[in-house]
């Protein structure tokens, strides 16, 4: 690939399911255009979508910062939401605090954080109760 560093920011609006996922779809299209390996596109798209949806349903929206260079795709999803009091508990498959109204829409299966851990090559979460959460997803484009 022959591009330098590509940076793109997205706003993730609060409680708007009509556009939730838009940022992830847009990044997916970018990666395909750049000729990124389909398997890596998939890993990125799934983990970013989960983080984006979490910002929408748990944290009143936020922003996504995307950085792509020769070696990696870096996605940072930041919100000023309530934060996660017990991250280890939240990482467990099936754990959710999503209300029924959200679960009825098919969200809130408690699989978002586990999916991020599974599909991201590196996952870093910084969260503080009352302040917000930063989720950083890295997918490496080169081996080693």
């Amino acid at each position: 690939m022959t591009y330098g560093i590509i940076r793109k920011d997205f706003v993730i609006p609060a409680n708007d399911f009509t556009i939730a996922g838009e940022a992830s779809s847009c990044v997916k299209k970018m990666l395909i255009q750049l000729g990124v390996d389909p398997q890596k596109v998939k890993k990125t798209a799934i983990s970013m979508y989960e983080a984006e949806i979490n910002a929408v349903i748990h944290a009143n929206g936020g922003i996504a910062e995307v950085e792509i260079d020769r070696n990696k795709i870096l996605i940072r999803i930041k919100d000023d939401g309530p934060g996660i009091p017990d991250l280890e508990l939240a990482m467990q498959e099936g754990y959710t605090t999503a209300p029924d109204s959200i679960r009825e829409m098919g969200f809130g299966a408690g699989m978002g954080l586990p999916n991020m851990r599974r599909y991201a090559d590196k996952l870093e979460i910084r969260t503080e109760v009352g302040k917000g959460t930063i989720v950083e997803i890295t997918v490496f484009l080169t081996d080693n």
């Binding site: 009509t18 996922g21 779809s25 998939k42």
Partner: peptide, 16 residues
């Protein structure tokens, strides 16, 4: 096949 009809099913379909 899904019973959901809200707009986010399109995002999921696109991503996978």
């Amino acid at each position: 096949i899904t019973v959901h009809t809200h707009v986010n099913i399109v995002a999921v379909a696109l991503l996978v």
